[in-house]
Design a protein around this nucleic acid. Sequence first.
DNA 1: TATGAATGAGCTTTCATTCAT
DNA 2: CATGAATGAAAGCTCATTCAT
Lengths: 227, 227, 227, 227
Amino acid sequence: MPTKTFLNLPEKKRAQIEAAAIHEFAQKGLRGASVNALVETSGIAKGSYYQYFSGMQDVLKHILSIARQKKLALANDLRSSNGRDMFAYLRWLFQVEILFELREPELSTIEHYAFLESLNSSAEADENAPLIGGPSFFNEFLAQGILADDVATWVDTKLAAHLLGAVYHLIARQLIVRLGDTAEALRTGKSDIREDPLAQSLLDNLMDLLEAGLAREPAIRKDFYSK
Amino acid sequence: MPTKTFLNLPEKKRAQIEAAAIHEFAQKGLRGASVNALVETSGIAKGSYYQYFSGMQDVLKHILSIARQKKLALANDLRSSNGRDMFAYLRWLFQVEILFELREPELSTIEHYAFLESLNSSAEADENAPLIGGPSFFNEFLAQGILADDVATWVDTKLAAHLLGAVYHLIARQLIVRLGDTAEALRTGKSDIREDPLAQSLLDNLMDLLEAGLAREPAIRKDFYSK
Amino acid sequence: MPTKTFLNLPEKKRAQIEAAAIHEFAQKGLRGASVNALVETSGIAKGSYYQYFSGMQDVLKHILSIARQKKLALANDLRSSNGRDMFAYLRWLFQVEILFELREPELSTIEHYAFLESLNSSAEADENAPLIGGPSFFNEFLAQGILADDVATWVDTKLAAHLLGAVYHLIARQLIVRLGDTAEALRTGKSDIREDPLAQSLLDNLMDLLEAGLAREPAIRKDFYSK
Amino acid sequence: MPTKTFLNLPEKKRAQIEAAAIHEFAQKGLRGASVNALVETSGIAKGSYYQYFSGMQDVLKHILSIARQKKLALANDLRSSNGRDMFAYLRWLFQVEILFELREPELSTIEHYAFLESLNSSAEADENAPLIGGPSFFNEFLAQGILADDVATWVDTKLAAHLLGAVYHLIARQLIVRLGDTAEALRTGKSDIREDPLAQSLLDNLMDLLEAGLAREPAIRKDFYSK
DNA sequence: TATGAATGAGCTTTCATTCAT
DNA sequence: CATGAATGAAAGCTCATTCAT
């Protein structure tokens, strides 16, 4: 919660400070970010900093809220009006995640850090945790999935939610690596992630993994590990 | 690689320092751990510290190697001689992970941190990365699984490996939370994780999720997300 | 290049810090000077120090520039408007050097140190090297001297320049020792170095040595070294 | 004065320690040399060091005595039995200096450092000061020169001694630079410094400078410095 | 005599925060 | 409100020296 003073700042100056903060956090991590460096790169006076924020934790909160806003905007752009089942929705989530990582790599990195921190911090609700993909998000998501008959009833939702969360947060970068040159086209908007063939095939595979598991038709089990 | 001086230290003193280091890393993270604090809590002189290690990075390497040793020992204790298919092997991996988390929570936390760091550090082989669950481990694992006909051929192994890695590293704590009081029994060895009913049911569910996916018999897709 | 912060400091405080730095360098040498000691004797906080300078090297540069300024001012005071030949000019240089050593003994010591360091550092232009008496100064000086027919054409200018440099930098203290009580009178300005008889006789002798050599009329060479 | 223990050390071990010390002093200067580094590179135990020497100052003294010995030996090799006048003797001194610099560059550097330190240390007799070229050496030298009628009687011997000392200590490196490729031949002994034409011409020039001064036949003085 | 582990003072540097202007 | 100078605690690391074995 930055000061009112900060929020009333001329747009340009505020953006400048935010950009510096984003860069600082992305580069040095949530804990490594330093006031001195931020003040230096943002060009504001040291005293001003303490009139805008109560500390780096405060800056972080603000940056994370910006991240959420931008991701939300991106999600809205991408949303098609078609009805979808749960897995189509999940696929959409991944698409958003990939685009966000491509277009706002620093913010994505910061969100990433925040997610990891939230894993370590004790069970207490971490207000830094992301809304989408946060602890309770996939719980509800799967509960609805069961209601809608998209998810088998035997599935332990809490367990599966945790699993989904892990995958959701850690898979985007891997997907981008696999996209190769296509990534650039997606980033600039030249190519639509909903139609790009490579992106589709990768997501198909991922979704099948989640939907159908590793072994849809398990062969007769053999001796696997022998040593 | 700690100094020979350190390795020749009387067992008791060495253990004391290692314990302090483990505590420090677990509490403050890989980057937050400080020489000063370690020196203070371990009771050695600052000068001595630098006769043992070249820096905190050096200490970390040592601690990680301890973690690997202990996990390996634990794995050996747990190994049954039965032949197993790939999923049985995977289940065993999770069992080891759970026990390790229970018995060496601080070391487990540190390994956890190291895994997360390895995700952020560039693709170059990170020597801090764990052997089991590391970048290439599940790749090979799945490749063998396909050969053994345990894994469907359509599976993109690199993608699935990343997915498995994410799940493997992030799920143990969740499982323990779900184990409730049983956790204590497993930790002390009163109960065998291979036979405990609650542990078995949780792992069954997890393995089914991985093996069979979220929706073994996917219903006809409905409109899921509507808002 | 000290910080703007330092340069904007109230005159008194700045002078105080500079004096402490000069004392420190003169006493402990260019390498032995320590931040801690400077901070202690100058009475500023350690943190402040790093807001003024980037390190001791930075302080040194500043002190050397002060030395150059003061010496220049002194030279201007001493300059007579008379036209002079090269040796008269050289004599003037020595006079300046003597007065500088008398009036700013610590600064002179520091310049001295800097000259010696510049001898050891590789041929690359050392920015700490003094302007007057520096590597290239006497080279040009002698070149002009030859043009003006003040210096014999057979003289190897590079060699002679090195020789002059050595003498120039190392002779002042010896001269002062020889001046005895007169030194004090010169220092306070009671006596004018351009007119003081003792100073003149010493400089005459020195100039003759340089101008005419050790043996203007070398006797027939005898067996000198016999042992 | 190293311990008797040190002097009784097996030749090989002692030489090894001395070599390490020489390297250390030459590289880091008389003050910068550190016990730790010496112990490390010499391969002796830290405790042993304190059984051989009372401190780095002690090591330095020993090294300087080695330097004197080696220079003396070199001088003896070079000495021709011919009678010489004072300037021939001086020329011989420079030849020794050049060869010493060429053959024992590290020892020469250390002697160089010691000379410079001796200039700064107060008038008290510095036992580190070199014998040849030291404070009193050239005094006597010139006194004898006057007796032998090699030096003009008007010369202030103390002043000239200082001057000679400065030149003697600071000129060798410059001469070597000027020798270019010839230096290597002199170092290895392929060429004799007493006969090598380039060396002779350089020394001729230097000796003439000292003997005859800069301006043997000074032209009528003109306006030299005008600005 | 030889060893090398132990030590704490000391070094340079960075840090978040306060406060007078 | 804005500024940036001031600050001292704390960081990582090196050092010469001691001393028990």
